[in-house]
Write a protein that binds this DNA or RNA. Sequence first.
RNA 1: GGAGAGGUGUCCGAGCGGUCGAAGGAGCACGGCUGGAAACCGUGUACCCGCCGCAAGGCGGGUCGUGGGUUCAAAUCCCACCCUCUCCGCCA
Length: 426
Amino acid sequence: MLDLRWIRENVEYVRRKMAERGVDVGLDEFLEKDALRRSLLQEVEALKHRRNELTRQIGRLKQTGQDPTDLLQENQRISARIEELDARVAELDAWVEAWLLRVPNIPHESVPVGPDASHNIEVRRWGEIPSFAFPVRDHVDLGRFLGILDLERAAKIAAARFPLFKGRGARLVRALAQFMLDLHIREHGYQEVWVPYLVNRTTMTGTGQLPKFEADLYAVPSDDLFLIPTAEVPVTNLFREETLSESELPIRLVCWSPCFRREAGAYGQESKGLIRQHQFDKVELVHITTPERSYDDLEVLTHHAEAVLQRLGIPYRVMLLCTGDMGFAAAKTYDIEAWLPSQQRWLEVSSCSNCGDFQARRMGLRYRPAGGGKARYAHTLNGSGLAIGRTIVVLLENYQQADGSVLIPPALRPYLDGLEYLTPGA
RNA sequence: GGAGAGGUGUCCGAGCGGUCGAAGGAGCACGGCUGGAAACCGUGUACCCGCCGCAAGGCGGGUCGUGGGUUCAAAUCCCACCCUCUCCGCCA
C-alpha cells in the first residue's frame, strides 16, 4: 500500500507510474473523495473539540452542585451532528482504505518501462543450452515412461491440474526440497521456518493477495481461511504488527511449503503437464531488511536462487521484468528462467522481488533505527529458491538420455542414495 | 466443544467512571562520569489522522485485543466476537 499523504503530494508522479504499469486506479475519484473526507473531518473535529470542553464544564458544575442543563442541551445538539458527520467520514474512510488496498506498488526507477513481457530485459545467462542427437521428449512423456508421474490418477482423486508423484518421483520432490534447503541454510545463512498453510484474511491482505485477488485463492469459507499460494504469505507476515530492532536486520528466512493456486483459465502448451498446477512445492526465500540496503539485497537474494540451478547444472537466464509485467506488490522483480528443451524456450522457475515498504505498510512491519528515533517501515523481499515442480520439469528434460533415462546431477545424488540415473521401474 | 484466567506503550507491568496517553521498571537515545568501557547519575523516549508552518514545531481529533452499548464523561461498567494461557473432553 502506498502512503496516503505521499500520494496527495505526488499525484502526477503516481499517475505516470500507474500508467507505466498499464493500470488505471482512478486517481481523480480518489482525490475527490479524499478532499471531501478531509473537509468533513475538520468540521467534525471542531465539534468534538467543543464537546470535550462541554464535558469538562459539565463535570465541574455537577461537582459544585450547579445546574448544567444548558450545557447538556448544547451537548446533545452537537452530538447529534457529530454522529451524522462521523458516519459520513467513516464511509469515506472505508472507501479510501479499500482504494488504497487495490493500488499496486510504484515501480522502482531502475525498472524498464513496457506494456508486457516482451519488454523485459535479459540481464545475464548461465550454462550451455543442451543439444540432443535424438528426438527430445517432454517431461510428461519422460515422467510416464519412468513411472514417476501419474496425472490421470491425480485428476481422479482431486481434479485436473493436481500432481501425483510416485516412487522415485516422490523421492525426487523430497530430495530437491532437502537439497535447496541445505544450500540456503548452510551456505547462504538462512533460518528455516515451517509455517501454517492456511492463513487468515488479515495475513493475505498484508502481502497483497487480498482484497484484489481473492478469486485466485483456494478458500475455506467455514473458517474464513485461505490456502497459501506461496510461503511468502505466512513467512513475510511473521513479523506483522511488530517493531523490530535494526540490529535484528536483515532477517533471512527459508521455507519449504506446498503452494495452492486456482489458476483459472490457464491452458495450452504454456501450462502443459507440471508447468502450471493447482498444487506444487516451493522453497521460498524471504528477506526483511532496511530501505538503505533492500536493492542490494535483491541482487543477493537473486544470486541465492541462481545458485540452485548452477549446482544442478541447468542453464538459465535472468530477466529484469518491465513495469507492465510485474506483480502487484513488487517494486522490482527478477525472474529466473530455466531452459525447457521440449518447447525450445525459457521457463520461469523463480521470481525474486523487492516489495520496498509496500507490504510492510500494509502489515505494520517496522523497525527501530540503530541510532534511535522514530520507527520506520522495513523493506520486504521474496523469491523462489526454487519452485520444485518446475525444477523437476527442467531437470527431467535437460538431463534426458537417448534411452529415456534421466541423469541425476551429482549435487543431487547424496539426497537419492547416490542414484545416478532415473530408469523405468523401481 | 465445555469451565476458568487474561489481553495496556519497543518489552515487562500498575491503573477508585472524570484530575490517564496512561505509575513503576527494562530497553533504547542523548549528556555527565571514565584513558576507554561496565556500573552509576541526569534528561528524553507510543501510534494514527487533520489543520497551520520551508522547517523545528504548534494546535486539534482519535487510539489501552476488535466491534457495539450505557453515561454529560469509559483503559476502567455492560454485550458480542477474536486471540493467549490453565483444566476437562476429543484426537494424528
